[in-house]
Nucleic acid binder design. Structure first.
Lengths: 154, 154
DNA sequence: GGAGAATGATTGAGTAGTCAAGTAACTGAT
DNA sequence: ATCAGTTACTTGACTACTCAATCATTCTCC
């Protein structure tokens, strides 16, 4: 008599499973699109986007790692690809010889602008097709309360 | 004057970025836990759980692939690991010689019960620490409206 | 009842990451 | 001034997948 059909495993598990499935389905779609039209992965795009909003389009590898939630070695390897493609270059740091900044090149900036056109449109389309504006605000603010950074060293 | 600080890139992008970061952070944590205490990945766990709720604890590989959103070859390789560990065995299908069912062994059933104790507790803890019951219902139902299956062949 | 298409599953080759170990450079207490 | 610890980054070995090709079997239907 109560309400709708609900998951027997508890609401937390239901939310988690929906979350997992949605991530798999949505990233698969976005990655395929991005790869087909721009030869970039979501993480490539994400890193370029982070660089573009950074002062002087440059970021230390550690900071990049933290902001896109990859390990330092993951960032090293990802940047290798972007360097080979010419979207990113390296700049040594005058004050600290350990750090090499990753810098967005002009070509990289251009590449990002192109990719943004289609990718941002896809993201907007997927979300706004399914949700009203106020629902998107709710969703964004709920998701924001989940861990958004690596918790393994807290 | 309007409201809170809001993301300049639009609410859809904000929701998407929060979603991506949350997935990376949360799966990293759960995977580490599950691997440390049970030597299972989230996908391993997920496959065992799917099998346990299936009639006769058996499922075709294609169905398994669809329900956990892996490719058929991903399922083949994942099952190989579970077979080697003894949690899953193969059963040929009488009606169709192409299919081999993956079936949960008694040991696998036991393994899953153990893993469930800690993993389900972690999931519940993470979500109920952060959200009220009605917020969880909202979150679950919003996430449910995102694609939950592979859209590449629609 | 046989040819062709579709389906279930596996395999080889490749990719995108992880972790642990290592190197180099910096920091801070004595 | 030094040396123990920390930080930035890279590397080798591995894992967990993906995709495309392949093989076997079953379905379609003329």
């Amino acid at each position: 008599m109560s309400s709708q059909v609900t998951d027997l495993r508890g609401i937390e598990l239901e939310a988690w499973i929906n979350f997992l499935r949605a991530h798999a389905a949505v990233t698969r779609q976005f990655n395929a699109e991005l790869l087909a039209t721009h030869e970039l992965t979501i993480n490539d795009f994400d890193v370029l986007a982070q660089l573009s909003r950074a002062p002087e389009q440059a970021l230390k590898r550690v900071d990049l790692a933290e902001s896109v939630l990859l390990t330092p070695s993951g960032i090293t390897r990802l940047l290798k690809g972007l360097e080979d493609a010419g979207w990113v270059s390296n700049r040594p740091c005058a004050e600290d010889a350990r750090v090499t900044y990753a810098v967005l090149t002009p070509a990289g900036k251009k590449k990002l602008e192109q990719a943004r056109k289609t990718h941002v449109a896809s993201v907007r389309a997927l979300f706004s097709e399914r949700f009203e504006h106020d629902e998107l605000e709710t969703l964004a603010s709920l998701l924001e309360r989940l861990p958004q950074r690596d918790t393994s060293c807290d």
